[in-house]
Structure formats: C-alpha cells, structure tokens
Amino acid sequence: MDLRLEGISHNYGSLKVLEGINLAIEHGKILCVVGPSGCGKSTLLRLIGGLERPSAGQVMQIGEAPSDSLNPLTYIFQDFALLPWRTVAGNVNLVLEDQKLSRQRRKDILENVLERTKLSDFADALPRQLSGGMKQRVAIARALAVSPAVFLMDEPLSALDSQTRELLIEDLVDLWTREPFTAVYVTHNLAEAVRLGHSVAVFSRRPGQIRQVVKIGTPLADRKVTDPELIDRQDYLWRLMKDEALAADLELSDA
C-alpha cells in the first residue's frame, strides 16, 4: 500500500501552515520529513493519518492495506502517549481489545511484539517505572501489535537523551532490516534523518512547502555514524535548511 499527498494546504484560521504539498510515500521505505520549527511537519503527519482534515487537497491511499493489518495508519508519538495506569502488557493490549481476535491470537501478538522490542521481562511494569527509552519501546511494541501498513512517527526520539536515541535508532534499523516497513518519520534532527531515511523531504519555514526531496542510497544496515557520505548528506541538508531555520527563529510566534 502506497500513500500519495495531492496538493495539500492547511491553515489554522488566517495562519497558513502548509501549502501545496505533493508527496509520494512508497511501500517498504522510510521517508523522513525535516524542516525548521513551526513549518507544519507535525501537522502534515496528523493530516496523513486522518487526525485532522486538510483545508485543501487530499491524502490518497493507493492499493489495499494488507488484510492482516489491524490499523493501517499507526502513530508513534513524541511523548509516548502511554496510559500511566496500565502495565506494559496492558498498554499493548489496549489497541487489541477493540479488535475481533481470539484470546489466543491476542496473547500471541502480545508475546511476539514484546519479544521483538526486547520487553518480555517488563510486561508487568508500569510506565512510571520505565526509562524514556523503554517507554518509547513500549509505544513501538504497541504500534507493531496492530501490524500497520504505514508507521507515522512524530519526532519519536526527540524526548530522549542522545545515548538512548542512538540505541533506539539501532533498534529501528534492526526492525526494518528484519521486516521492511513503510514509515513517515518527522524529525528536526538531521543525523536521525540520514540514518533512517531512504529519502528526506526538506520543508521550508511557514507556510511549509517542500524545498527538495533528497535520496540516500546506502542500505540502512550499512549506515554508520562516521560514514563520510552520510556526513556529507547531512551537511547538504543543513545548508538547504540553514537560512530557513534562521528566518523561522526570528519570527514572532503567536501561532
């Protein structure tokens, strides 16, 4: 299943946040979206998943979602969005309880996703007992449980410290390598974008428009922090963005 954004514009009242966005989200690839703060990249993600209606244009789904997908468009949020009153297992179960599944099937899915995210030993822990990185792994497990066709990730690693971030990048690369998934990955961190993106869409400042879509050919599993080509790509992205970021920073934000 592919997604296509056709001429998407969006405004909040008189404030234009997105203008004329055309973008293809290809099956089995990770598309990173970067841009200065306030460029509407998180808004775009909410539009893609149907949490908000665009003021103009539409999000098209091309082809059927796989039949085993319980929730084709699934989010992973920056603040994890875990229910503090439910255990790790309870949080994953939450998204399965409304599905028509046998008790055994539900149990199998739970065990499978906890194992894939290395959380099996923490099934009964409450969110407050977990570190930030662990919480985000629970959120990833919860997303995996509904076998999405497309992951919509809204700055999933931004609330974490840099070591944890590095570990989770490796986890994500690992998950993708074992079983390629489709994802839109919104971030303001260019290093994350070049590590995880098959292509990187660079947005201008508000109203957000696509400046360029940069392809990165190196297979995900082979990308190392010190890879000169990646550093070169990152530098190129930064130069694309720098003036925009500077201008965005000087704007008064009464949005």
Binding site: G49, L51, L70, N71, L73, T74, Y75, F77, D79, A81, L83, L94, V95, D98, R142, V146
Partner: peptide, 11 residues
C-alpha cells in the same frame, strides 16, 4: 494526547 492516541488506534 492520550485521547488522540486512542482515536489513532481506532478505539
């Protein structure tokens, strides 16, 4: 955000 999360998972 928790409510949006619930909606996004089709609860």
């Amino acid at each position: 955000n928790l409510i949006r999360m619930g909606q996004s998972f089709g609860l």
